[in-house]
Each structure stands twice: as structure tokens, then as C-alpha cells.
Design a protein around this nucleic acid. Structure first.
Lengths: 163, 163
DNA sequence: GTGAATTGCGCAATTA
DNA sequence: CTAATTGCGCAATTCA
């Protein structure tokens, strides 16, 4: 399902002994004005394991009939598979690229988060320092309820932190 | 350079019209107990453009002599390329996996960072609240220099935040 | 069992 | 020139 494309295939089944197959679908790249009329030319029929015509079907594993290269149905299957392969590879590549991009996005977000952490940490440390200073002041002022000379204005400190 | 392996090639150049080639190098994976004695069987020699023995080397672009499939040197080149291809694909896959893992790692780190941010934010808000409380106390106590009842020990607050 | 999807592999063109 | 990439087809296998 879901095979919207219908790339034209030029299946020139040459009866000369070779079947020149050239997927001409969607302006194939790497096929410059060259005389590339030659592609892989498979042939051959590896000795059939079938001698007299024996047959033991049920649970046995027959050695697949080497598929007739000339068969019409064969070409059809091949073509379908070729399409599937192409599709699969496209998706694979796409996925890889997506993953790569995901990495980039995550990296960016990471940086943002780290920056935020830095900021928050800074704010925290400032507030903590203020607290400590205050504590000191209390410790110095409380014992003697009489304050005549402080000589230390704990700094205005006005963080005005936003966010 | 760098070709430690010497994959045995069974190049049975059959004069019957087929040459059974079986790269049996390094125990290839996916080669179960199957009779895979049939692979692609190229053949054919598309008319050589060389007739009398013309030669125009320097800046011209010859159409490449279609490489003799039987040539020994050809097989050598093919094999080298096959190795290179395999290598390249391995790396490609490896890279893809690495990238995927990178995504996972980054995701984890992201979560950690977000958690940390949450924590810091919380701490900050607590401290700020304390500050406000204090401010109020001051506002209430300062006007009358006489302090008879504070009733609010700002809490020890000892976050001891690790990490 | 069938057809699509994957996967490993080889070939050839192109690129580095 | 050699090695690395890349697109493509074949066949075996795995998934649905």
C-alpha cells in the first residue's frame, strides 16, 4: 500500500541473450550522455537439484527454481522490488538526516539550558551572600542593643532580577 | 595499500558463456546453509572504440575502454573497490548508530539540566520569599527602635545542594 | 502464502 | 592512480 509513484520503467527484454534493463524513472542522475548501454548481464542456471522429478513437499525445503530470467513475471517482481529498495533507501537516508538534525536541536537546547542554569546559580549565590551578610550584621548588632558605630553599610544590592 | 585480507576468489571463467564468480572472502555473514552458487554474472564486450590503435592522450577525454571483464587487472580493481565499498558502508552505518546514540545522550542530559533548573528555581523562590518576609519585619520593627518581640527566626536554611 | 520492506553484496560512475 | 562515495540492481530474508 501507499505507492503513489509510478515511475516509467524501460524493460527492454532483449531476446538476443541479454536483457538491457535501465530504470529510466525520474530523470536518473549519474547517467550523462554516455554510451552506457551495458549493465549487469546476469545469466546462468545453476544445476537444478531436481533430477527425475522427485517430490517431497510437506515439511521439506525445496531448492527454489532459479527463476527464469526471461519470465515476464520475474521482471515484474524485480521491478517491484527495485522500487521497494529505492523507497526503503530513501527513507533510511531521510531518517539519518532527521536524526542528525535532532542532534543539532538538542545541542542548542542544551546550551540554552546551561545558560539558564548559570544565570540561576549566579542569582542564588548573590542572594545567599546577602543573607550571610545580614546574619553577620545581626550577630554584631544584637548582642549590644546599643549601636553607636556600624561603619559598614552592607551595600545596597538591588538584584532586580527579572523572569 | 592496507589490504591485509586476501579473500579467495573463485573466478571460474567458464567459456560456456558464463563466469561464476563467488567472493568467498572473510566468512561473509548472511550466508546460511544455502546454495548461493549463483550471483550476478556479467559478460559482454561492447564494441571497442579502438580500431587501428589511435591515440590522443594529453588533454582529451577518451571514452574509456570498457574494461575487459576477463582481465586480471580488472578483477583486482573490482575487488579493491568491493572492499572499499564494504568499508565505506560499515562506517556509514556506524556513524548513523553513533548519531542515534548521541541523540539519546543529549536527551538524557537535557532532562538532567531541566531538573537542575527546576531545583535552582525552587531554591531561588524560597530565598526570595525569605527576603520579603524580612523586609516586612524590618518595616514593622524599624519605625519603633524598640524591639520587644520578633517571633520569626528566618529558618536555618541550609540547602547543602550537591552537584 | 503473498507482497512489501530490509539487508548484504557487487558493479560502475563520480568524487576526493 | 587509488581510495571513498554514491546510485542502482539482484537475491535472500524478514515483516505484515
Amino acid at each position: 500500500m501507499s505507492r503513489p509513484s509510478q515511475p516509467k520503467l524501460t524493460t527492454s527484454s532483449d531476446r538476443s541473450g541479454v536483457s538491457v534493463i535501465q530504470s529510466q524513472g525520474h530523470a536518473s542522475s549519474s547517467l550523462p550522455p554516455s554510451v552506457i548501454g551495458l549493465q549487469q548481464v546476469p545469466q546462468l542456471v545453476p544445476a537444478h537439484p531436481s533430477a527425475g522429478g522427485g517430490k517431497a513437499l510437506p515439511p521439506s525445503k525445496m531448492k527454489k527454481p532459479p527463476a527464469d530470467k526471461d519470465s515476464d513475471e520475474y521482471r515484474q517482481r524485480r521491478e517491484r522490488n527495485n522500487l521497494a529498495v529505492k523507497k526503503s533507501r530513501m527513507r533510511s537516508k531521510q531518517k539519518a538526516m532527521d536524526t542528525q538534525q535532532r542532534v543539532n536541536e538538542l545541542k542548542e537546547e542544551n546550551e540554552r539550558l546551561e545558560a539558564k542554569i548559570k544565570l540561576l546559580s549566579k542569582e542564588l549565590s548573590v542572594l545567599k551572600d546577602l543573607f550571610l551578610e545580614h546574619a553577620h550584621n545581626l550577630a554584631d548588632n544584637v548582642p549590644p542593643p546599643q549601636a553607636g558605630a556600624e561603619g559598614s553599610s552592607p551595600a545596597p544590592n538591588n538584584p532586580t532580577n527579572g523572569q
